[in-house]
Design a protein around this nucleic acid. Structure first.
Lengths: 116, 116
DNA sequence: TGCGTATATAAGCATATGCTTATATAATGA
DNA sequence: TCATTATATAAGCATATGCTTATATACGCA
């Protein structure tokens, strides 16, 4: 209703879109929406450095878009279903092609982390 | 199906989201989706400089997201319904609050351009 | 406790981005 | 044709962004 809220909505959406306007982060989101992944798996999948992936995840986490789940020495990331932007996220990710095959490739190489 | 197309889709979407990850451009898109606007109107609405608005419009046009419609000395911009990203654009804009009130404010100030 | 693995953070750097000012181009109307 | 208005483009600059390398922190296990 009020212009105040309208401004907020525009701010929120543009901030979220800016975050997802990076191919690596957008793909991470799609991937961890389908299957929670730990950092080292993402490093392998994206052929990126560990700090680079870690920094992307930090931005996504700071925005509340992903959540962590520590399992021993690994930290698994997944899409945060309680995010304020969840509707938007759902809509965006639903129109992207599945990235599960990337995880399956990992598995074939024996690089998939599986712990309890 | 193919990983090639999947990569393309991710590229396309992340590029589009990056463009709309700017509050000014996102708002311009919502605005000109509801009512075509010329540059000088946008300058007034956003309290921005003419070159700044012009440069934002250039980016949107280069990406095929908006189209031009010259009327005399003015160039009116509107959302391009034939954009490759039209579905995505429709989805995003539909969840944003109407910006028509900004045009109405212009009208009150007598700054609305109307040329039939 | 100490070592190896996983992850996060800090600092530095090159490039991208969005603004500014200045100028060019295009259209209107006297 | 000339002045005015609208718009686009170019160049320069400050800040943002995403990577790198180096280092810190956290956990598991011997």
């Amino acid at each position: 209703m009020s212009a105040i809220h309208e401004e907020e909505r525009l701010d929120q959406m543009s901030n979220t879109l800016k975050l997802l306007g990076d191919k690596t982060r957008l793909t991470i989101m799609k991937l961890v929406d389908e299957q929670e992944c730990c950092v080292c798996e993402l490093v392998e999948i994206f052929k990126a450095s560990q700090p680079s992936i870690s920094q992307h995840l930090r931005k996504l986490k700071d925005a509340g878009l992903v959540k962590e789940n520590r399992k021993g020495q690994w930290i698994f990331y997944s899409v945060n279903p309680d995010s304020k932007q969840n509707e938007l996220i759902r809509s965006l990710l639903s129109s992207l092609p599945s990235q599960v095959y990337k995880i399956e490739e990992l598995e074939k190489k024996g690089l998939r982390i599986s712990c309890g």
